[in-house]
Simulated scan of single mutants.
Amino acid sequence: MSLTTSLAGRRALVTGAGSGIGRATALLLARQGVQVVVADLDAQRAETVAKEIHQIEDGGATVLTCVGDLSDQAVVDRAVATAVDGFGGLDILVNNAGVYDMMSAAGDVSDAEWERIIRINLTAPFLMTRAALPHLLASGRGAIVNTTSEAGLRGSAAGTAYTVSKHGLVGLTRSTAVMYRDKGLRVNAVAPGGVATNLVTEMKVDPAALGPGTVSGYAKLNAGRLGEADEVAAAIVFLASDAGSNINGVVLPVDNGWAAV
């Protein structure tokens, strides 16, 4: 086996690919010669990224789009079918789509906030994983990379709902890695710290729902520069490549040392 990051000829499905880390990942995979399905809730963003991919190497990159809410089983099935029917199979799944909460403490989380965050951040990756598994196993070199968060490693990086959702995604990563490690599938995750993406810039915080010092504590722990989406994408592509062939069940912090605090 050649332990390189080359992924030429492989087929990938990236969720939340219309912006931020997902966009950066889709573009980097395309530059590696990967056929990419750009899946996103926002049709305009998905089409914009698809156009960017088409421009790689004078239009030589192959891209398809799938638009919809990936917590809906029908949309999940359509996303996987887009890759399988369009590319003849699936080798890489990047579960990246996610939304932030309102930094609410447990006693202040509404049913609506809880259900929305868990549905998008945890249920959707599970549904995507379950639907993609037969095709990833059939490829013989399948890889899943989940985007969790520093909030999946500690209790102080976000509100209750988001923190629980990302801890759950860590559990999904490790459980799936163990269950399928002898069947040619690897499952890993990245845990970004603060990253300059729409998830951060569009974050809405409910001051009334915050415990004492929550925001100041978040800022203190995240002292230093925000990461760039391209930096997280590079880690995702590495984990999906043969260079990471013996890496399985790992949650890799990409956080400028936040996890070391």
Rank of each mutant, 00 (worst) to 15 (best):
L172H: 06
R225N: 15
R116F: 00
D242E: 15
N95P: 00
V99C: 09
I53E: 07
A219N: 15
V232D: 11
V254N: 09
M179I: 01
L127K: 11
P253E: 06
F87K: 05
R174K: 14
G194D: 12
R154D: 07
V170R: 04
Q44V: 10
S165I: 02
L199S: 10
S2A: 07
R11G: 08
A259C: 12
L13D: 12
T176C: 09
L93D: 14
E150T: 06
V254E: 14
N246R: 14
T214A: 14
G249Y: 03
G22E: 09
G194Y: 03
V251Q: 14
L64K: 15
V254D: 13
R186Q: 06
R116K: 12
F87V: 12
L41P: 06
L29Y: 10
G68V: 06
A151S: 11
V76T: 05
K220W: 12
K166L: 00
R119N: 13
I56P: 05
C66W: 01
S19Y: 01
V109H: 01
I236Y: 09
A26C: 03
V80E: 10
A189F: 02
Y180G: 11
M128E: 10
R119G: 06
V170L: 05
G86L: 12
G86T: 05
A208H: 07
G88L: 07
G68N: 07
D255G: 04
M102Y: 10
V63S: 08
F87L: 12
K220F: 11
A39V: 09
L133P: 05
L13K: 10
A209L: 13
L64Q: 15
Q35Y: 00
G168W: 00
Q44D: 15
I118G: 03
V145F: 00
K51W: 03
E113T: 04
A83F: 02
S241W: 09
W114E: 07
R130F: 02
V84A: 06
I144R: 07
G152R: 00
A8L: 12
T197Y: 00
G159W: 03
D182K: 13
S245H: 14
D101M: 06
A24I: 01
L7K: 02
G20S: 01
A74C: 01
L137R: 06
S139F: 03
I118F: 00
T25V: 03
R141H: 11
L239Q: 04
V170G: 03
L169S: 04
S104D: 02
A43L: 08
S245W: 10
V49D: 05
A138I: 01
K204E: 15
S104Q: 08
M102V: 10
N188R: 10
L136N: 08
A17I: 01
R225P: 15
A243E: 06
V67L: 10
R225Q: 15
A191D: 10
V36N: 03
A39T: 08
F87I: 11
Q44L: 11
A24M: 05
